[in-house]
Design a protein around this nucleic acid. Structure first.
Lengths: 174, 174
DNA sequence: TGCATTTGTTGTCTATTACAACAATTCGCG
DNA sequence: CGCGAATTGTTGTAATAGACAACAAATGCA
């Protein structure tokens, strides 16, 4: 997800609209383009929403350089210290191969470590370093800020309703 | 999205579970791994859900080799014959550069065509070929089948509720 | 008329996903 | 107990995708 410069597009919708109507006179006629049956597809909206949310997340946490997948890895390790790579991968639906790379990076940044698992010479026990714990704490604060953006956009009631719905339907089962 | 072989994993959840408990005796103890605060993040569920949905979509339409983004392009062209590439890109949130490549492929498959736009020598007017229209019709049937899978998983009421919510919150605005 | 913007295009870089193959280890069943 | 099958972490490859930059041609507009 290379979105190299999500912060640049960080303008709020209203701000963006304003900017457009000032510097760019909205160009005579922009004909409305309908999306037809896409309006009946949950996946379409789910995708659009997910992209929007991830962009906001990336932008909000850009000051600490933590992306959604990295955040989820830190959270799950923090929640289950000593778990193995394959358990972690399975839990988050990340490929084992991909996780190897992610952990290499996080480790290089001094946030996580692989320790020999007691009584399991082939697997690793994953831990947050002290720095990783600090980073996670900071990340959680910023993530809460991100979630506030969501509330702002959806309305508190809608957000809660949606979260409850999603949790009921998607939790556990992959 | 290289998911080269989504069909292979096409087993229904129950079937998968059964298969696992038969051929793979479930491996003594698989400790439950909690995801902590991820349970409070809409983006987390949104992502998991979106991936699941897209995989089912890809699988369900695999017989005609149409992926979600391609489907959305066909639908919008079908709905707005003659629209330009940049209007299409803007509508679907696809990059102009990326759309160029997608249209090259769809065109090579004889599904879409670029015609000179009347009175606008730099832009193209996009159309479905006759074959493209047939393909779209078939795709819509299969997409409905996919949507039925969703209903099966979410329950009809939940799906409708979720769709209404999403539509209310995400439609129009990018 | 002349300058800024738009449109389609090409190309580059990075992130992500799916796979395959391996060595080392561990499991489980006969 | 022993041995074949499965698991774990790893490396590597190919395909897909998004973000950007840079262009030429065309167009808009002051």
């Amino acid at each position: 997800m290379p979105e190299r410069n999500v912060e640049a597009r960080a303008l709020q919708p209203d701000a963006r609209a304003r900017a457009k109507s000032v510097s760019r006179p909205q160009r005579n006629t922009r004909p409305p383009v309908g999306v037809g049956v896409l309006n009946e597809h949950l996946g379409y909206f789910m995708r659009r929403a997910q992209v929007w949310i991830f962009n906001d997340f990336i932008r909000t946490l850009s000051e600490i350089g933590i992306r959604p997948a990295q955040y989820s890895v830190l959270v799950v390790i923090g929640e289950n210290p000593g778990l193995s790579q394959s358990d972690l991968a399975r839990t988050l639906g990340i490929e084992r191969a991909r996780l190897v790379h992610m952990l290499d990076l996080l480790q290089r940044r001094g946030l996580t470590e692989r320790q020999p698992a007691p009584g399991a010479r082939r697997s690793h026990a994953l831990f947050l370093t002290r720095e990783g714990q600090k980073m996670l704490k900071r990340a959680k604060v910023l993530a809460a800020e991100h979630e506030a953006h969501l509330t702002e956009r959806l309305g508190a009631a809608n957000r809660k309703l949606m979260l409850d719905l999603m949790r009921e339907v998607w939790q556990g089962r992959n």
